[in-house]
Nucleic acid binder design. Sequence first.
DNA 1: TGTACATCAGTGAACGCGCGTTCACTGATGTAC
DNA 2: TGTACATCAGTGAACGCGCGTTCACTGATGTAC
Lengths: 218, 218
Amino acid sequence: VPAATPAASARSRNPRGQGERLRQELIDAASQLLVDTRADEPLSLRAVARGAGVAPQSVYLHFAGKGDLVAAVVADRFAAMTRAGDAAEATAGDPVDKLRARCLAYCEFGLRHPGHYRLLFDSRATGQLDPPAFPSPAGAAAYTAFLAAVQRCIQAGRAPADDAAAVTASLWAGLHGIVALRWSKPGFPWPAVGQLVERMLAGLVGIQHRPGPDEHPP
Amino acid sequence: VPAATPAASARSRNPRGQGERLRQELIDAASQLLVDTRADEPLSLRAVARGAGVAPQSVYLHFAGKGDLVAAVVADRFAAMTRAGDAAEATAGDPVDKLRARCLAYCEFGLRHPGHYRLLFDSRATGQLDPPAFPSPAGAAAYTAFLAAVQRCIQAGRAPADDAAAVTASLWAGLHGIVALRWSKPGFPWPAVGQLVERMLAGLVGIQHRPGPDEHPP
DNA sequence: TGTACATCAGTGAACGCGCGTTCACTGATGTAC
DNA sequence: TGTACATCAGTGAACGCGCGTTCACTGATGTAC
């Protein structure tokens, strides 16, 4: 529990004409608060204001209310996740390696930033959204990138022909389970993330697994 | 938002010697509150007391505090889920049919009682536990039942020999994804639960899919 | 070159609310003698 | 058979807290004339 004094007490007001800066500062403060949130408490407008070093009312200068603020944070974090997935995919050349890289980037994002991941994919958190409109454009973009990666594998002959949308949905479900259950049940003896991802790729997409240098088959 | 008046205003006090009844009444009231909870708000001790028709202080007659109450609700709901899974498995004779029945029962429990499922498997909810000890005996029992079902399939020759623990972990992850993402992204065009479960069984466990009477292959 | 004024980036103070928890109390029911 | 007492199942009243939101205000900075 942080002290009652603002975290950024040294903040000075933005220069005239730069008032919009506070908007991003508030989004960043909310992201920072969520980074390692394990508790069940919803994001608090007053905590965000404290994190940004401003009074609670100042949030209303840029957002219509708490729901609007949360929606902006969701959009910001979805963009960050999409960027991470695209960057990972770009480092691979092969369609299979691209799909694998995107899957691993998805899991890594979720495991490194559990609060952000939950904000995007946990229904308790997405229930904070105002209005609760689904699917969001950002969420649809994340799915579309996976679908394209799966389709490329099929077209390259690296995966059997199948209903690509259904394959992608099952793959997404598998990846979500890998991430979400690991946070939910940290005491469970989970296999390595890489091994689980490989099982999903082999079993759900149908990709043949070629053991790499750091794989040790029994 | 319910009215400020208690939901069960007609409640009369339990007869002498039957004070323990209130304990279960409180657990039931909490379960009822969670049944269709979509919001991000944590379970509230005062709301539980209102639901049971007693004053907030009465909770302390049976529980040390909010955390203790939540832990009791978790144990109660885990028991209900285990019962549902066991009952579903008992209706099937074949090892594969037993495993499938348990998987479908798992998904059905999660989809019919999202608030209960989240209490057991969402880290935001499990984070309410006091103390946050994992794995809980009840959670371990749920996993063990799945592991046994997978092992029976392997021993019966209905699934290829593999690391049964790793197979079960990946299957669990897949089932969790089927349930959790469906609540998180209700606007997404999800395939039918049965089809996704069949994909998980075929791909992750290695069970051969034989089309049933209500399956319509393209 | 000075001055009145508009704009901008915020803040001071307060509102009513629900929360978890504590302390002292009540009133019915059983039991000892 | 009557009565004092213990036990039991709760409640009355209050505490301090953080929450989202509203209204009026401040003080610095730029602009028109």
